[in-house]
Design a protein around this nucleic acid. Structure first.
Length: 884
RNA sequence: GCGCACUUAGCUCAGCGGGAGAGCACCUCCUUGACGCGGAGGGAGCCAGAGGUUCGAUCCCUCUAGUGCGCACCA
């Protein structure tokens, strides 16, 4: 493609595919280990293998890619390690759904066959999300891609499990767990979502045993659990029931005698102050049962149906049982009343089924000893949360943590490495598979059928992916990682667990910073979800607008830690920006033919005010961007670039450079070419981490050094900041804006060139005189006459006055003198208000005494300026009125 | 119930101790040799309410109201 053929509208499609393939083919994403340099490492939060890329992924991975590309250009050996998560429940459910279409269940296939199916499925679809990440431009090192169930990660899981077992931190026991009857497995506490629901509170009379007519009324939200009751409890201080403690009641419909016990757990102010106790189906009742040595009667089974323990209700669904039971209670005269009650009901976070707490034998991780150091390291600053407020959320969770239920009644996952000897009863946790009992030698052994919680393997991700437990070169060099980038919804699930596992096994933090971002919401501010159907597919946005646009829109729309709303207007605005970058580059390319920067010695060039200004502005924007990125304010950095490119480079610098680019002065032309190239090429490098594709495409067409912009060095400043140039140029901008404004208010069309008479103080006049061609060009003048402020004022003219400068546009025929008078009057009023405000401040003794000297000084200067401007305006008014 | 956020222009959101900002939308003008996915100009806000700290508060503190989100075993 020659520069002449560059289309006027940027088309991302071909460009993105081409450069991504180029980067892959050239191994651009794979770092070289250099012991002399400081590595920069991120391990990806592994997406679910079965998943498809959603907006949350798009944001999370764009942030990571910006950080990664930035540090890579900065010269750090940079590793972004990608991979996927086996997502036990989700993946298994997916494959089971496939089987169900053929009328089969996993039990029909058997464990081994079923697992083969899942692997098959994984091989077929597991790569999809990785491909989708590539569409986004993610510069992950795919040669190091990992999967939580690959050999290395599985090895790490085994090592950690057995090691924790040996340290006494993993145990097996019968406790109340959160059981999902739909997923048919136990889940951990954080996988339960509590939803506020209006339910009922049933008041049921339990007749006293051995007494005529006496009864105790209990209140329950789950009548079906009555069948499993083994006691009634009251508070020991509750006077109402004092005499009943120690007596017995008869369980309605069942006839079981059970004790009335006293326990401080009972809140006398709730319900009737008497609580039915079901040790097999409620965690608190379970504990009370332990304290009082109560019987456990299981009445609800793993399928959510009533068990044999439920007697004549056996086999009924739990809710059907509830209905029938309540009827029976009513018939028997046991039901006292029913009240509405708002309470929180636990639902499975995966399938939204109501969780059934039930007694079950499961594996647990003892949390207290692991949580302690994890709290410590964060409190001591070993790990920093950004934004800082998430530290508190993290700490509160760990401080109140309960043991972690890690066994899952699934087939897809890391199988628990524990064997039971059927002969001697020995329980063996082993790093390697075993075929005989080490105690009695029996080969009659059986491995635990359950698998581990997926998060167990995810918790090891930062080091298992780098080769642990082997002491690999990668692990040595890239660990600990630099930052973890993730959404705020996953702090407990993942962040906390990685931290305590790393401390327990690496004796070091897994990452130094945790950067938390918000969620991507829909335009109405709702969470995007499948059930609402309000999700927007990132790939659709990429198709329509390009990956750079999606990335930049997400980045500039996000503030660390806060949610952002997705709306198409912002996508379009960002697309327009991409197009702006494209077109200003197009202009540059059209004017750089035959230009070779290597043939130019900058010290031979004569830089104009505009040149010095834009170079200085570049430097300060460059420094600002670096500062913002190091604070993780990527949105701020993106916005700074947006404004610099559009407002300063395009709207001011390039417009002025055209004067020389299209002029006859060869030297001046070369200088303009040089500066335009210099600033554009460097700005593209600043922009590259945010918009990798378009910047690469343009950069390749511009004169440049190196193979790819992604490996080009991060730009340095262009010399020192030139405050004089910035100040002088600001004056030009003010004058130009003033002229444009005055013309617009007088409805003078741009085609109507006007004479501009500028009167100023000697120094200022000199600057303006030298830059008069800027005013000619930007303010549609045909002639600029610059004189001293003492000179005679033109009569019939539009005017404006700014600090020490008076500008007149003598447009006799176009000027409506009444309008002009009104304008001046309005300005006078405004200026009088300013003077008053300034005076008031400066008359305030407290202000003079306590405000910083420079603030006071600034205010004094302002006052002088205002007074001067006011005087001139009044003079102008007098003359206008005199002329009438 | 406890905790954490948020409330700024019509909309989406920045700013956060010294005179209110952006994008979109709106109004006026412009076929200027990169771009109409553009250019120039403009209107628009008691910065939720009430107190307090301060010379000075949109910004810090307290309370109130509304919204959102976490956490929580009240049967």
């Amino acid at each position: 493609m020659t520069t002449k053929d560059i289309p006027t509208v940027y088309d991302p499609h071909a460009v993105e595919e081409k450069w991504y393939q180029y980067w892959l083919d050239n191994g651009c994403f794979t770092p070289e280990i250099d012991p002399e340099k400081q590595p920069y490492t991120i391990v990806i939060p592994p997406p679910n293998v079965t998943g498809a890329l959603h907006m949350g992924h798009a944001l999370d991975n764009t942030i990571q890619d910006v950080l990664i590309r930035y540090h890579r250009m900065k010269g750090n050996p940079t590793l972004w390690l990608p991979g996927t998560d086996h997502a036990g429940i989700a993946t298994q459910a997916r494959v089971e759904a496939e089987l169900a279409k053929e009328g089969l269940s996993r039990w029909d296939l058997g464990r081994e066959k079923f697992l083969e199916k899942v692997w098959e499925w994984k091989h077929q679809y597991g790569g999809r999300i990785i491909t989708q990440l590539q569409r986004l431009g993610a510069s992950c090192d795919f040669t190091r891609e990992r999967f939580t169930m690959d050999e290395g990660c599985s090895h790490a899981v085994r090592e950690v499990f057995v090691s924790l077992y040996e340290r006494g931190l993993i145990y097996r026991g019968s406790y109340i767990v959160n059981w999902c009857p739909q997923c048919h497995t136990a889940i951990s506490d954080i996988e339960v979502e509590h939803e506020d629901t209006t339910g009922h509170l049933w008041y049921v009379r339990y007749p006293l045993a051995d007494e005529e007519n006496g009864y105790v009324t209990v209140a329950t939200t789950r009548p079906e659990t009555i069948l499993g009751d083994t006691a009634v409890a009251v508070n020991p201080h509750d006077e109402r029931y004092k005499d009943l403690v120690g007596k017995e009641v008869i369980l309605p419909l069942v006839g079981r005698r059970m004790p009335i016990i006293a326990d401080y757990y009972v809140d006398p102010t709730f319900g009737t102050g008497a609580v039915k106790i079901t040790p097999s189906h409620d965690p608190n009742d379970f504990e009370i049962g332990q304290r009082h040595d109560l019987k456990q009667v299981t009445v609800i089974g793993l399928d959510g149906r009533m068990t044999e323990g439920a007697g004549k209700f056996a086999g009924l669904d739990r809710y059907e049982c509830r209905r029938q039971l309540v009827n029976k209670l009513q018939e028997g005269g046991y039901l006292e009343k029913i009240e509405d009650l708002d309470h929180a009901v636990g639902h499975c976070s995966r399938c939204n089924t109501v969780i059934e707490p039930l007694l079950s034998k499961q594996w647990f991780v003892k949390m207290k000893p692991l949580a302690e150091p994890a709290l410590q390291v964060v409190k001591e600053g070993g790990i920093r949360f950004v934004p800082e407020r998430f530290t508190k959320i993290y700490c509160q969770w760990l401080e109140n943590i309960r043991d972690w239920c890690i066994s899952r009644q699934l087939w897809w996952g890391h199988r628990i490495p524990v064997w039971y000897c059927k002969d001697c009863g020995k329980e063996i946790a082993s790093r390697d598979d075993i075929s005989s009992c080490p105690k009695c030698g029996s080969s009659h052994i059986e491995q635990d059928p359950d698998v581990l919680d997926t998060w167990f393997s995810s918790a090891l991700w930062p080091f298992s992916t780098l080769g642990w437990p082997e002491e690999t070169a990668d692990l040595k060099y890239f660990y600990p990682t630099s930052v973890l980038v993730t959404g705020r919804d996953i702090i407990f699930f993942w962040v906390a667990r990685m931290i305590f596992m790393a401390l327990a096994f690496m004796d070091d933090v897994p990452f130094k910073d945790v950067f938390i971002h918000g969620l991507v919401l829909d335009a109405e501010g709702r969470k995007m979800s499948k059930s609402l159907g309000n999700g927007i597919d990132p790939l659709e946005v990429i198709e329509k607008y390009g990956a750079d646009t999606l990335r930049f829109m997400l980045i500039t729309g996000s503030v660390p830690g806060y949610d952002l709303r997705f709306n198409w207007e912002r996508v379009e605005a960002t697309r327009n920006f991409a197009n702006k970058v494209w077109n200003v580059s197009r202009l540059a390319l059209l004017n750089l033919e035959g230009f070779d920067p290597s043939q130019v010695n900058p010290s031979d060039l004569e830089f104009t005010l505009a040149d010095r200004w834009i170079r200085s502005r570049f430097s300060s924007v460059r420094n600002r961007v670096v500062e913002l990125i190091s604070d993780y304010d990527l949105g701020g950095a993106g916005t700074a670039l947006y404004e610099f490119i559009w407002d300063e480079f395009c709207d001011w610098y390039v417009e002025l450079a055209k004067l020389r680019l299209y002029g006859d002065d060869e030297k001046a032309r070369q200088t303009a070419q040089y500066v335009m190239w210099e600033v554009l090429e460097r700005t593209l490098r600043l922009l590259h981490p945010f918009m990798p594709f378009i910047t690469e495409e343009i950069w390749q067409h511009l004169p440049h050094e190196g193979e790819s912009i992604m490996n080009a060095p991060y730009p340095k400043e262009i010399g020192e900041r030139d405050e004089k140039a910035e100040k002088e140029f600001a004056l030009i901008q003010e004058v130009v804006r003033g002229i444009r404004n005055a013309r617009a208010e007088m409805d003078v069309p741009p085609t109507r060139r006007a004479r501009v008479i500028i009167q100023a103080k000697p120094e200022t006049a000199a600057v303006l005189k030298q830059s008069s061609m800027y005013i000619v060009s930007l303010a549609w003048a045909n002639e600029v006459v610059t004189g001293l402020i003492t000179a005679e004022k033109p009569p019939q003219a539009v005017s404006f006055i700014t600090n020490g400068v008076e500008v007149y546009l003598p447009l006799a025929d176009l000027v409506d003198m009444d309008k002009e008078t009104a304008r001046v009057k309005k300005e006078i009023a405004a200026m009088e208000a300013e003077v008053k405000r300034s005076e008031r401040m400066l008359a305030n003794k407290g202000f003079l005494a306590k405000a910083p000297a420079e603030v006071v000084q600034k205010e004094r200067e302002k006052e002088v300026g205002y007074r001067d401007k006011l005087a001139r305006l009044k003079e102008r008014l007098t003359r206008l009125q005199g002329n009438h």
